[in-house]
Each structure stands twice: as structure tokens, then as C-alpha cells.
């Protein structure tokens, strides 16, 4: 029985390390600003802004990687100039994450790259739903088998059937 709990202990430690590694890998992707925050704080460093491409504002040559549009938040919108690799996923009424800098003098956001909404919540949800029940199911099943071996070993009352000497682990 001790060996059984020890094995599961090792597995839990391994899984925890993996969770920590995963979190640290995506930590920087989690931080995004809203258009309102950008307008209020005028940050100077490179930032990630999340918002919706306003309908009817998208202009430019997408194949050459140049575009301008308005990025809408809850209340305010941000004028955006994009210059970078040809955007695969840019279209109107789509929520995107833009990576770039806020230019205070021209009051535009200069984006160099864009990313899809990360949806980490869904990914995390799927892994929790998929793996936790499976692990619990196996844990209780394995424990039951250990207990059954113990019980069979102890039930010497009906020893008449030849061999009941199994090692319970």
C-alpha cells in the first residue's frame, strides 16, 4: 500500500512541475491591455492590446503587410497602424491581440505583429476535464485492487482453495 501511494506521489509531483512550467511559459502572454488603459496611461514600452476591429474601418494592402483600422474596447477606440508580416487573421469584427507601441505625438498605435485571442481558459478547461477524472478513476481503481488483495490474503477462513498467497503491494 505504501508503494502505491508513493507512486502516485511521484506522479503528482511530476504533474505539478509541468503545470508550473506551462504557467511560466505563458505568463507574459497573459498580460494584455484594453484600449481604454492605453489611452489613459500612454505607456512607452512595447505592449499587447486586446480589442475588436471596428466594422468599416479596415484599410490598406493586407498582402504587403500594411493596414490601418480602429481597435474598439468597451468604450473607446484606438487608431492603429499595422506594419509587419502579411496578417493571416485580420478582418473586421474580429477580436485580436496587437503587439506594438503607443505613439503619443500622433496618438496612434504602431503594431508590428498580431495574435489570435489566446483562449487559454478553454485549453486549460479541456485538459482539466480530460485528465483529472481519468486520474481519479485510476487512483480509486488501483486502491481498490490493493485492498482486495489484502482482504483475500486475510480471509484465511476458506483457505481450502489452493493458493491465495498473493503479494499485496
Amino acid at each position: 500500500m505504501t508503494a502505491f501511494y508513493l507512486r502516485w506521489g511521484i506522479l503528482v509531483v511530476g504533474a505539478t512541475i509541468l503545470v508550473v512550467l506551462t504557467y511560466r511559459n505563458y505568463e507574459e502572454n497573459l498580460a494584455t491591455m484594453t484600449p481604454e488603459q492605453v489611452l489613459a496611461n500612454s505607456p512607452t514600452e512595447e505592449i499587447r492590446v486586446k480589442g475588436l476591429v471596428r466594422g468599416g474601418t479596415l484599410r490598406g494592402e493586407l498582402e504587403e503587410g500594411r493596414a490601418s483600422f480602429d481597435l474598439a474596447g468597451e468604450k473607446d477606440t484606438l487608431p492603429v497602424q499595422y506594419e509587419g508580416p502579411p496578417p493571416e487573421n485580420l478582418r473586421e469584427l474580429k477580436t485580436l491581440i496587437l503587439i506594438g507601441k503607443w505613439k503619443t505625438p500622433t496618438r496612434t498605435f504602431q503594431a508590428r505583429e498580431m495574435a489570435l485571442v489566446t483562449n487559454y481558459g478553454f485549453v486549460m478547461g479541456a485538459y482539466i476535464v480530460g485528465l483529472i477524472p481519468l486520474a481519479l478513476f485510476l487512483f480509486f481503481m488501483g486502491r481498490k485492487v490493493c485492498l482486495l488483495y489484502d482482504e483475500i490474503k486475510q480471509s484465511t477462513l476458506y483457505q481450502s482453495e489452493s493458493d491465495t498467497h498473493v503479494d499485496s503491494r
Partner: peptide, 11 residues
């Protein structure tokens, strides 16, 4: 062919 229109929001 995709055109967006603002009011009501849609395509």
C-alpha cells in the same frame, strides 16, 4: 464578398 455594417452590427 464580406462587408461589415455597423448598425445593427453584422455582416
Amino acid at each position: 464578398s464580406v462587408k461589415s455594417h455597423p448598425d445593427p452590427v453584422g455582416l
